[in-house]
Design a protein around this nucleic acid. Structure first.
Length: 543
DNA sequence: TTAACTGTTGGAAAC
DNA sequence: TGTTTCCAACAGTTA
């Protein structure tokens, strides 16, 4: 079979795997020589926006990919430093490559980057091929199926009217049979004009990127570790078939869910491979299975839901100018000293509520917390207790989580803050009661807040209520060795519900005013006018 | 148009 | 110890 290209570059971004990688396979099918390339973009290689934990996970993933390319295909991963839109045109023209393949990406930064790149590549006479393999379906296809191209906000109707109309989910593609590449020496004889990309340096260490040295982590990055994790869970057929997310514990000492999210985020594990693995278990398992939304395949469907919603929503990651987001007058940490202190206490796990603080410490140490733990701390930061804008929560999670996924993270924050998708603001997580349901003894708190480990279980969730004698006996004085609670939950949560009620009333008033205006002006056709204008007048004083 | 129904995962008290 | 009931009551969908 003759191939129409001599040299192709397969650019790894997400999709950091060899299995089910249609873009890589397309490169192998069309070109004689393939350059597997990763680019360390300074936009991401940045201690301010990516935690050391997640960067370590990424570097482990790159290292695993490199090893697999060497051992299975006799090639390697080439790692360049620089901005992709600068690096790629230079490499392409040095190597005289005529094909560039990569996996499609829906995030705004990636969309803008890829669009500019595609134009640039065309001017070099390079064919660009994007393949959809990060999600179950091509997100643009799902977006096109959305009625009036409106972002979905209700899961069940998304499934009914959008997802189930998209046809069957593409089957994972096979591994490449071979990947013929260039040796580093050959590569370097081609690439003579780009010394600053440091390709010969290979995969960097954390220190090279300005991070502290790597430390042991519960979750090892990479396709190999990800597939092993997936397989070991798929082998527990009864557990897989009966899985119901709301029934798993946020404060289990070993994770009560799969922790495949970091691997799905980086594409170490293919969502489709996991999907079909699950379907195989459901098919062969005797007895009933749980169903979406709470089942494991239901979790993958949530992912499609948020990706589609994010793709169709302008200004998705902010409140202002975001058409699906309630406009709420949150207390601003930039102008309120108290709110800024509160935000900092929340980030550092020093709120004085052990359940909240233990979660925030686990997040910092391990880079992963259970979904319901995310609920508890997100509710606490926003409508539950501190009444701080969810955007601050997004930013902290975006920095700290191994699985930080823009579409899902932002969506969950809007959900929890009752800004979109979920509106029952009077249902509020208690920072004291919620954790007790699954951990009466407070073992989770004892693990992550060792200063409290000797507290009697009666007081472990609210240590400030313990008599001084007991505090002394436990070796931890509240206000000295562990903070006093920064707010009185009962009082602020009631106050916040009132504020939420006001914000909702205002929203409805604006909506109705908009309706009236439209009907009186004779329905001039122009849609979506309701986005702005809610927060203008009448400033409440909140401090 | 209206009204009933539904929405992945609440808390606290009563049984 | 586990299940039921009340609390106070929103938005989006469907009949």
């Amino acid at each position: 079979m003759s191939k129409s290209h001599t040299i192709a570059i397969h650019w790894f971004r997400k999709g950091l795997r060899l299995h089910d990688n249609p873009a890589l396979l397309a490169a192998c099918g069309q070109a004689t020589k393939i350059i597997p390339l990763f680019i360390l973009d300074p936009h991401f290689a940045n201690p301010g926006t990516v935690s050391p934990r997640r960067y370590q996970f990424l570097l482990e993933t790159l290292s695993d990919l490199d090893t697999n390319l060497r051992e299975k295909y006799g090639t390697q991963l080439y790692v360049a430093r620089g901005t992709p839109n600068d690096v790629l045109p230079r490499i392409v023209s040095e190597l005289k490559a005529t094909l560039l393949t990569f996996e499609a990406d829906t995030e705004p930064y990636a969309r803008a980057r890829d669009q500019a790149l595609e134009i640039e590549m065309k001017s070099h006479g390079v064919k660009v091929e994007q393949h959809w393999s990060h999600t179950l379906h091509d997100i643009t296809e799902l977006a096109n199926l959305c009625p009036k191209n409106k972002p979905p906000t209700v899961y069940q109707s998304f499934l009914k009217h959008v997802f189930h109309k998209a046809g069957s989910i593409p089957k994972p593609v096979p591994l490449p049979t071979s990947i013929d590449s260039l040796t580093l020496q050959e590569f370097q004889t081609f690439v003579t004009n780009v010394p600053d990309m440091s390709i010969e340096k290979g995969i960097p260490s954390l220190e090279e990127l300005g991070y502290p040295a790597a430390t042991p982590c519960a979750f090892q990055g990479g396709e190999t570790a990800g597939l092993e994790r997936m397989q070991s869970h798929l082998a527990r057929k009864q557990w897989i078939a009966s899985f119901e997310k709301p029934k798993t514990a946020p404060n289990a000492l070993t994770p009560s869910t799969t922790v495949l999210s970091p691997y799905l985020k980086f594409g170490c594990v293919s969502a489709r491979t996991f999907w079909y693995g699950l379907q195989e278990v459901y098919k062969t398992h005797k007895g009933p299975r749980s169903l979406p939304p709470t089942s494991l395949d239901g979790q993958l469907l949530w992912r499609e839901f948020y990706y589609t919603s994010a793709y169709l929503t302008a200004n998705y990651d902010q409140m202002k100018g975001n058409p699906i987001c309630r406009q709420i007058e949150w207390i601003d940490p930039d102008t309120s000293i108290e709110a800024s202190t509160h935000l900092k206490a929340w980030q550092e796990g020093k709120t004085g509520f052990p359940f909240i603080d233990a979660i925030m410490i686990q997040l910092k140490q391990e880079g992963w917390i259970h979904h319901l733990a995310r609920h508890a701390v997100a509710c606490f930061l926003t409508r539950g207790d501190l009444f701080i804008n969810w955007e601050h929560g997004v930013r902290h999670f975006e920095w700290a989580l191994l699985d930080a996924d823009w579409s899902i993270n932002v969506g969950n924050w809007m959900w929890l803050s009752a800004s979109c998708y979920f509106y029952q603001y009077f249902r509020c997580y208690s920072p004291i009661a919620f954790g007790k349901k699954t951990d009466k003894n407070g073992d989770y708190i004892r693990k992550y807040l060792p200063q409290l480990k000797n507290y009697p279980k009666k007081y472990i969730y609210e240590p400030w209520t313990a008599p001084l004698a007991i505090q002394k006996e436990a070796g931890c004085i509240i206000g000295v060795d562990y903070p006093e609670p920064i707010v009185e939950h009962k009082i602020v949560s009631k106050r916040n519900m009132m504020w939420m009620k006001e914000a909702y009333a205002k929203h409805n008033a604006n909506k109705n005013a908009g309706k009236k205006k439209r009907s009186s002006s004779g329905g001039s056709g122009g849609s979506g006018g309701s986005s702005s204008s809610s927060s203008s007048s009448s400033k409440k004083t909140k401090r």
